[in-house]
Amino acid sequence: MPNEKDYELRLYVAGMTPKCLAAFANLKKICEEHLEGRYSIQIIDLLENPKLAQGDQILAIPTLVRKLPEPVRKIIGDLSNTEKVLVGLDLRERI
């Protein structure tokens, strides 16, 4: 199944802060609802791997990076606004 994991997502966090935990919970929920079975989520804790921040040009925390499908998209914040997240992931037409 080549397009089983066609949504490759990375969530950058810095420690288990409330914002990061909220972001992860929100992301999990959105993906389950809209991308069931077609996604993978990688959580990167910058406190453990600070070097990785440079590669994806991470400044804001939390940041969700859609590595695939291209082009790369970044969504910053705790992902509390589902509509905006869907727009950011190109799952909803931009208004």
Binding site: I58, A60, I75, G77
Partner: peptide, 10 residues
């Protein structure tokens, strides 16, 4: 895309 609260911890 901005959604919700964030900081510049990165």
């Amino acid at each position: 895309q901005e959604t919700g609260e964030y900081d510049l911890e990165g």
